[in-house]
């Protein structure tokens, strides 16, 4: 029994129909309980007052915005090396989720920045690199949409994803060099000293888990959709020929 068995679309669909309800349930549970915990039962912070509650949306979505791209990178590599269709379709299915996560991170950041920094937007390195990440997502999706042959599209988007990853990292360092930041340091890290206080930390962890499960559920579901669409197209093509 190996992981690669699930590269078979039929097996993948069978597995995903079994685990999907669990993931949807866990996502809903974690998101609802984490957000309610954070919104109703955590104190206001000294400096930020009630805006500290935005952290429960901002940090998880920002994490996911990056992690979704990493997942797409891994899926693209698997497609290029082992040519499992499910992998390519999973990368395709994940991209719009990444876009939404990036948008949420940007929006909540802007809404938080307005009262705290006195501006909706600043050309801070972190903000700028997220905007650039957003552009990369748009280009990736546009390339998928533009090419008709699914295998060609999968190959080209995978190459773009690899090259894009390198340039995204480069851009990150370039903007760091280019402008000094307003942005807070990491709110979560292995270094305990830097972390936010425990009152905020635990509900934040629950929210992050919620975002992760939501992402897993969405990607599995959307991959299934792509597999079905592809099979429909193949069957239709066979009908036309017959």
């Amino acid at each position: 029994m190996s992981l690669w068995e699930y590269a078979n679309p039929v097996r993948f669909l069978a597995l995903s129909s079994r685990v999907l309800p669990v993931f949807w349930g866990l996502a809903a549970l974690c998101l609802v309980s984490g957000l309610i915990w954070g919104f109703f039962f955590t104190p206001n912070a000294d400096k930020f007052e009630s805006t500290v509650k935005i952290i429960y949306l901002h940090v998880p979505s920002a994490m996911m915005a990056i992690n979704v791209w990493v997942m797409m990178l891994v899926a693209s590599l698997i497609w290029l090396v082992r040519r499992h269709h499910v992998s390519a379709l999973a990368a395709k299915a994940a991209a719009p989720v990444g876009v939404v996560m990036t948008l949420i991170a940007l929006f909540t950041g802007a809404i938080w920045g307005q009262p705290m920094w006195g501006t909706w937007w600043a050309w801070d390195p972190r903000l700028t690199s997220f905007l650039i990440l957003f552009l990369f997502y748009l280009g990736y999706i546009a390339l998928w949409e533009a090419i008709e042959d699914p295998d060609t599209a999968a190959d080209l988007t995978s190459v773009l994803c690899l090259v894009g990853s390198v340039f995204a990292v480069l851009s990150r360092y370039a903007v760091n060099f280019w402008n000094q930041g307003l942005h807070q340091g990491a709110s979560l890290s292995l270094d305990k000293e830097e972390n936010v206080a425990d009152v905020y930390y635990f509900p934040l962890l629950v929210c992050i888990a919620g975002f992760v499960f939501l992402f897993l559920a969405l990607v599995l579901y959307r991959t299934g959709t792509e597999i079905r669409l592809r099979r429909t197209r193949a069957l239709q093509a066979r009908e036309v020929r017959a």
Binding site: I54, V97, F107, P115
Partner: peptide
């Protein structure tokens, strides 16, 4: 929520709307 109620509520509003749409 004090004087930042608008900011917090709109952040939650926008995010849930986006997630829901997705």
């Amino acid at each position: 929520l004090g004087k930042y109620a608008d900011a917090v509520l709109s952040a939650y509003g926008v995010s849930s709307l986006l997630l829901l749409l997705l």
